[in-house]
Structure formats: structure tokens, C-alpha cells
Design a protein around this nucleic acid. Structure first.
Length: 428
RNA sequence: GGAGGAAUGGCAGAGCUGGUUUAAUGCACCGGUCUUGAAAACCGACGUACCUUAACGGGUACCGGGGGUUCGAAUCCCUCUUCCUCCGCCA
């Protein structure tokens, strides 16, 4: 959520940002509407505060009069206060209405895209930020997609997932289960080496947390919700991990704060079935190691670059071909200012699969979270910047690993994972 | 799940028979005096959000969350949440 102060001071940037996000001109009046609602809020707040100040003053006087035994005067004053209270209540109602109206509009306003975000409407328009420089792996015509390899080499079982839970749930077995565990440990170790504090958070969150990172109210339908306890299954570790800092004021010297955590991620993903979502390409539950940072506003883009390099390093070590996209205005998330997507090439499906998304939210999440830092010099508090990225999401990584490394005898295990799998070199 | 107790500023902790409490006091933190330096001692400052002001400053709200009673609520009432103690159940 943007602050009204920011919107007032950067109106043209906000409007330009909405245009990059393909908002039509007839919707742009929301910015002026927000400012108008904020004007009304300020006016009513001033009015109400003055009335309350008067009430407080009179109440104190009444206390004094009672002590002196001047009952008649006290009672007369009491009636005056009652009249004042009626008027104050009206103003208070108006103030609350203005606040609600303002809040409702602010929630509809997405983050301002970074100047480098390219124009565009669909994923076709995303800019290739870093192309894969080597040759893409070529497999023979007899190459199999991962869902077939999974059966041949005991990686996972779709039917059992359906039997136990439903479509879109996977049961990993034997080789696949070990591979999951190896990848999680490898990713966590790498994040640990990069200075991230490892955490293992709750996998269900309350509404405050979901609101803090922007899942509510924007993406209500994406999450599983438990009716009786009103908790949400996390769609990403971003939610519980970033919310560690909700409401905090940290010292500038404590920045950057870096967390990493492994969690399963649950996504309802309503209404998308078909060939392109077969196998592990899109599932309701997948595993992911997430990296999260809270940083000084002046340094957030340096930290974004650092996170991009971290993810690139993981893919290099796994020996997977990948490219990096800079998401265009039409494809970038509601809460993000700049997002890089990583896509790993699936040689058997002959297509790129999204395996990571790394974003800078600037103050958008921090404002909802009320995550601030205290400036070391001025002692003033300011909103921090938050960032996060997948490092990495497992399901699709597993797909590309087993497809690209297939041989008639089994799946070659990437060198870097072998020590995590008891020296195993081939899955068969 | 049952019974009882509690929730106060970074921490500890008073206030809780409603009105100089604009939340005492101690510790921590910060600034200063003293000192070669440090410690001790002493002095001072010490929250967040919003409104207002060119600025200094002024105002309002916040004592777990929400609502209520009252001229006036940390204090009384209702409700929710969390924590503690005991019992029950349990990986």
C-alpha cells in the first residue's frame, strides 16, 4: 500500500506507474479521489481534535468544581459538554467514513513500477534480462517428459496424490522423495552461506499476516482457508517469514535483515487444467526455499541484484540452463516495484518453466506491515524496503532436473546434490 | 476440554475504592558535567500514529484487541485474543 504522503508528493509518478500497468485513462481519477478523501480526512480530524480538546478541558473543570462543592455550576457545565459530544459524534462518523473510503481506494492502488519496468501487457512482453549463453540441451526424439520418467524411475506418483488428496497433489516416492530432501538441504545451506538466518515458520497464518504481505485482500482466492479457525495455508514462505518483522521498528544498524526458510506452499490455482499444467508444472502443493530481506531504502536495488545473483548461482551449480526475465507492466505483481523471473529450460517439453521470482517491494509491503527503521543520525523512523525471492521452488526444478538429465539407464544426479543423497549418482 | 489468575512505555514494575497521573519509580539507551580515559556520581532528554505550524511549538488518540457506561476510564461493565497455574487428553 502506498502512503498518501507519497501519492501527494509523487502524483505524476503514480499516474505514470498506473499507465505502465495498462490502466486506462478513465480509471486514473482514483489518484485525485484519494487526495480528495485525504483532504476531507484531515479537515475532519482537525475539527474533531479541537472538540475533544475542549471536552477534556471542560471535564477537568467539572472535576474541580465538584471538589469545591459547586454542584450547580458543575451540572450546568455538564450539559454544555453533552451538547458538544453530540456534535463531536457527528464529526467522528464523518471522519470514519472518510478513512474507510480512503483505505478502500488505497487498497486498489498497486505499487509504482520501477523506471526499468518495460511496457507491455502479457508475459510475451517480458524483457529477456539475461539470455542463456550456452547451447540449450538437445535430447533425442525419444526423450520423455518428467511425468513419464517419474513412473520409470520411481520419482513420484500422480495417481496416489489424487487418491490421497486430489488432483494437483503429488506423492513423491523413493528417488523423488530423496531428491526433494536433497534440494531443500542444498538450498538452505547455500542461503546460510549467503548470510540468511534460517527459520522454520508456521505453515498457516492469520488474516493480519496475509494482509501484511498483500495476499489479502488482493489474492483471497489463491489461498486455502480453514473455516473453523479462520487461518490461511501459506501460498509462499514470504508470508510467515516477512511477517516476523510486522510492526517492528528496527535500528538502521541492524539492516539488512536476511531470513531464509523452507516451507511447503499451497495454492488453489482455480481453473487451470490442460497439457501445459501436466505433471509438476503446476500443483496445489510444492516445496520452496524462500529468501527474504528487509533493507535500507537507498540500498534495496543493490540487494535485489545480490538476490538475483544468489539464485543464478544455484541454477549454475545445478547445471541447469536458465534465463532471467524482467517482468513487464502487464505481468508484474500488484505489490512489486520490480520483479525478475527465472526460467529453467525443460529439454523434453521444449519450453521454459518459471522456477523463481525475485522482487523488490520497496515500501509497499512495509507500509502494510508497519515495518520501519530508525535513522542512526536523525533518530527519525522511516519505512524499510522489503524484498523476497524463491531460492528455489522445487517442483519445477525437479521437472527440469529429471528431464534434462535423463538417460535410458536412469536420471543423472547433479554433482552438487550427490553428497546430499548419500553419494548416489544415478536414480533408477 | 474444565477451573482459576494475569496482560501497563525497550525491560522490570506501581497505579486498578474513576478526576493535578500530562502513567510513579528503577534499569537500559542517548546527550552533558566531572575525569588523562573509563567507571561511579550528578544533570538533562527519553514512545508511536495522526492533525496543526514556515519554524519553535500546540493538539488528539494509544495502558493486549474491539465495544460500552460516564462530564471524565489504565481504573467500572461486556466481548475476543494471548500468557501463567492446576486438572483432563495427547504426538
Amino acid at each position: 500500500m502506498l502512503t498518501t504522503t507519497y501519492i501527494r508528493d509523487n502524483k505524476e509518478r503514480v499516474l505514470q506507474g498506473l499507465r505502465i500497468r495498462n490502466w486506462t485513462e478513465d480509471r486514473l481519477h482514483i489518484v485525485d479521489d484519494i487526495i480528495a478523501a485525504d483532504d476531507a480526512r484531515k479537515k475532519e480530524k482537525t475539527e474533531l481534535d479541537d472538540m475533544l480538546a475542549e471536552r477534556n478541558r471542560m471535564s477537568k473543570e467539572i472535576g474541580g468544581l465538584f471538589k469545591q462543592g459547586k454542584k450547580d455550576e458543575a451540572n450546568a457545565l455538564r450539559e454544555q459538554v453533552n451538547a458538544l459530544k453530540d456534535r463531536a459524534e457527528k464529526v467522528e462518523n464523518e471522519l470514519n467514513e472518510s478513512r474507510d473510503r480512503l483505505e478502500e481506494m488505497l487498497l486498489q492502488l498497486p505499487n509504482v513500477p520501477h523506471p526499468s519496468v518495460p511496457a507491455g501487457t502479457t508475459e510475451e512482453d517480458n524483457e529477456v534480462y539475461r539470455e542463456w549463453e550456452g547451447d540449450l540441451p538437445e535430447l533425442g526424439d525419444d526423450a520423455k517428459p518428467h511425468w513419464e520418467l517419474a513412473k520409470d524411475f520411481q520419482i513420484f506418483d500422480m495417481e496416489l496424490g489424487v487418491k490421497i488428496a486430489g488432483a494437483g497433489f503429488i506423492l513423491y516416492r523413493k528417488n523423488g522423495a530423496k531428491l526433494q530432501r536433497a534440494l531443500i538441504n542444498f538450498f538452505l545451506d547455500e542461503a546460510d552461506r549467503a548470510g540468511y538466518e534460517e527459520v522454520m515458520p508456521p505453515h498457516l497464518v492469520n488474516a493480519d499476516s496475509a494482509r501484511g504481505t498483500g495476499q489479502l485482500p488482493d489474492k483471497e482466492g489463491q489461498m486455502y482457508h480453514t473455516e473453523k479457525d479462520s487461518l490461511y495455508l501459506i501460498p509462499t514462505a514470504e508470508v510467515p517469514v516477512t511477517n516476523i518483522l510486522r510492526g517492528d521498528i528496527v535500528e538502521e544498524a541492524d539492516l539488512p535483515i536476511k531470513f531464509t526458510g523452507y516451507t511447503p506452499c499451497f495454492r488453489r490455482e482455480a481453473g487451470s487444467y490442460g497439457a501445459h499444467v501436466r505433471g509438476l508444472n503446476r500443483v496445489h502443493q510444492f516445496d520452496k526455499v524462500e529468501i527474504v530481506q528487509a533493507v535500507h531504502p537507498d540500498k534495496s536495488y543493490a540487494h535485489l541484484d545480490e538476490m538475483v545473483e544468489h539464485v543464478a548461482g544455484l541454477l549454475n551449480k545445478l547445471e541447469l540452463p536458465y534465463r532471467i526475465l524482467r517482468l513487464c507492466g502487464g505481468d508484474i505483481g500488484f505489490t512489486s516495484a520490480l520483479t525478475y523471473d527465472f526460467e529453467s529450460y525443460s529439454a523434453a517439453q521444449k519450453r521454459w518453466l518459471e522456477v523463481s521470482s525475485v522482487s523488490n517491494f520497496e515500501t509497499f509491503q512495509a507500509n502494510r506491515l508497519k515495518l520501519r527503521y530508525r535513522d542512526a543520525e536523525t533518530k527519525k523512523v522511516h519505512l524499510a524496503h522489503t524484498l523476497n525471492g524463491s531460492a528455489l521452488a522445487l517442483a519445477r526444478i525437479v521437472a527440469t532436473i529429471i528431464e534434462n538429465n535423463q538417460t535410458p539407464e536412469g536420471i543423472k544426479v547433479p554433482k552438487v546434490l550427490q553428497s546430499y543423497m548419500g553419494g548416489l549418482e544415478i536414480l533408477k
